[in-house]
């Protein structure tokens, strides 16, 4: 465990200093800070729009950070030869991979925490939230996003064990897009009895293999207070178990590929 933590700590330390990530984070934070100024665009439902907008900014910024952070995790280590000094020590490849992943998720968590804090501060200063219940309701959304991004990072780490950073960027981005926007589309296709069996089969495979990122989009109750999640505790537990299962499968698959990869 000590080896994994040492690698994770170093990865985190390096990630939070990477300029490209800091620039993306800065852009996200800037948008969060100026978002309230956009309320004039829709005076009728200003609060709804503002919440949707800020949560959307956090989600999009986090997704970009998650992918950019993880696509270079392994290739950078190989290119700079740091992997050789590490793997020539009593470090197993799976420990290296898990350490890199945990470090990346840690850095991602810190960046998301910063964005969430800024969002809540802006809301408090602008008096857009009242009471701890409302703050908690808002804070739960970035938390669900964090689990979603941890899953996206696992997808990207898996691809990084064999794909170049550019290819990985599009693969991971594609998987996220399919799992977020097109998941219900593939779900409908896979259940359509009138479809060609081959197309239906393909749609079923995509629907099963690609993680359902959409299920982590829990912003509706925070945006529209008339909506709520039934058995909220069980719902979040289910989300956690779902993400943990997928992350485990992806990391195990990554370890298998990485174990036989020549670095």
């Amino acid at each position: 465990m000590g080896v994994i933590l040492a690698i994770a700590k170093t990865t985190l330390g390096e990630a939070v200093r990477r300029r490209v990530l800091l620039v993306i984070l800065l852009v996200g934070v800037l948008f969060l800070a100026i978002a309230p100024a956009l309320e004039a665009l829709s005076p009728r439902q200003e609060l709804t729009v503002l919440r949707a907008l800020t949560l959307g900014i956090i989600q999009l910024t986090s997704a970009v950070i998650a992918v950019v952070l993880t696509v270079y995790l392994i290739p950078n280590e190989i290119e700079r030869r740091t992997i050789y000094t590490i793997l020539s020590k009593p470090v197993r490849r799976w420990q290296f991979l898990i350490g890199k992943y945990l470090g990346a998720v840690g850095a991602l968590g810190l960046m998301m925490l910063l964005m969430t804090t800024i969002m809540l501060l802006v809301f408090l200063i602008m008096r857009k939230v009242e009471g701890t219940a409302e703050i908690a309701s808002l804070a739960k959304v970035p938390f669900a996003f964090f689990i979603q991004m941890s899953l996206l990072a696992a997808v990207s780490v898996f691809f990084s064990t064999f794909a170049s950073p550019i290819v990985n960027f599009f693969l991971s981005g594609g998987v996220y897009l399919v799992g977020t926007v097109f998941d219900s589309f593939f779900d409908v296709l896979s259940k359509n009895s009138q479809l060609n069996p081959a197309v239906k089969g393909m749609a079923s495979i995509v629907h099963v293999i690609v993680p359902n990122f959409q299920s982590f989009n829990v912003q509706n109750p925070a945006i529209n207070q008339l909506q709520f999640i039934q058995s909220e505790g069980m719902f979040y537990l289910g989300l956690g178990v779902y993400a943990f299962t997928y992350i485990s499968i992806l990391l195990i698959a990554g370890i298998v590929v990485f174990e036989y990869r020549e670095v």
Partner: peptide
Amino acid sequence: SYLPEKPYYY
């Protein structure tokens, strides 16, 4: 132990 050619450190 191993010292690579042109080592890079964090």
